[in-house]
């Protein structure tokens, strides 16, 4: 029965189209206009619908990815499914700082996706794009505990060759030694600049120390083996490597003020 109904409907639809075909001139300007207007409306609705329905899932994925990257900087490997469970185990406090290194806000416990003041929800990429002076911005800092040690995880954002690059730098409790790093990119060249996300590059940051004065850390063209304040850049990815260096130094300049204040208060 259903097949008969289906074929009948099909014939009916076809005959409607045939009448429609004969009735109008498809090469007229009016038809072209109506067709394009209809097309734009339909495509617009379809794309808006797809985007809106998938937005919550995409946001959740982005938050999971952020947790994976933060944990990756302190050398904790986790998966998308476990990120939500693992994150609170290691990240004990989320702090937001002003550009002078003063604590603005501090959060512990669960992350609320709707709470805009939560340092986890601060959009550092958007802040970077806005090109506002640092004094107008708020900087998030994640304080982690691993094996009894305090580790500070700092988000960094900058520009590569083709588009944005970002990542996390983990600093040990001596506020001087790099515990680990994690970088990612949007559109760097595969095989060249894109290699900054690979372990062979980020592993080189481990155990290196920060210089006393700016530049605190260098990404060099070779010759870094004897230097504790620098790593080798990526061959063929010079501009991306320079971008990593720039974003690390620019961001550290702000967070080192916070570290300085911490050492001063503990010394008193």
């Amino acid at each position: 029965m259903t097949t008969t109904f289906f074929s009948q409907t099909l014939t009916a639809v076809k005959s409607v189209f045939r009448i429609f075909d004969m009735a109008i001139n498809k090469n007229s300007t009016g038809y072209t206009f109506i067709f394009s207007i209809l097309m734009v409306v339909i495509v617009g609705v379809a794309l808006a619908f797809t985007s809106l329905t998938l937005k919550p899932l995409q946001k959740k994925n982005a938050a999971d990815k952020q947790m994976i990257d933060i944990l990756g900087a302190i050398q904790v490997i986790t998966t998308r499914t476990n990120a939500k469970v693992d994150f609170p185990i290691y990240v004990v406090e989320r702090v937001s700082l002003d550009s002078e290194g003063n604590v603005v806000d501090s959060k512990t416990g669960d992350i609320s996706a709707t709470d805009a003041t939560d340092p986890f929800n601060l959009n550092v990429k958007k802040d970077y794009r806005s090109k506002k002076p640092a004094s107008e911005l708020i900087f998030p800092l994640y304080i982690c505990e691993k094996g009894g040690d305090k580790i500070y995880v700092i988000p960094v954002v900058g520009s590569g060759l083709w588009g944005p690059i970002w990542g996390y730098i983990a600093i040990e409790s001596d506020m001087h030694t790099i515990y680990g790093a994690k970088f990612d990119h949007k559109t760097e060249t595969p095989g060249l600049g894109a290699e900054i996300r690979e372990d062979f590059f980020t592993d080189k940051f481990r155990g290196k120390t920060l210089n006393e004065v700016n530049p605190f850390f260098n990404v060099l063209k070779g010759g870094s083996n004897t230097d504790t304040h620098s790593v080798d850049g990526i061959t063929g990815g010079t501009i991306t490597s320079k971008g990593v260096e720039e974003m690390v130094n620019r961001t550290l300049a702000i967070y080192l003020r916070y570290f300085e204040k911490q050492t001063n208060t503990s010394a008193k």
């Binding site: 498809k26 090469n27 038809y31 072209t32 067709f35 394009s36 097309m39 734009v40 495509v43 379809a46 794309l47 797809t50 985007s51 998938l54 899932l57 995409q58 994925n61």
Partner: peptide, 26 residues
Amino acid sequence: PDRIRIIVQLVIIASLVIIVDEVLKA
């Protein structure tokens, strides 16, 4: 319509690619 067929084809391809991208992202 013949005169805008290339634009129509481009719109269709571009929308499909965007949908693929959004679905993969989610």
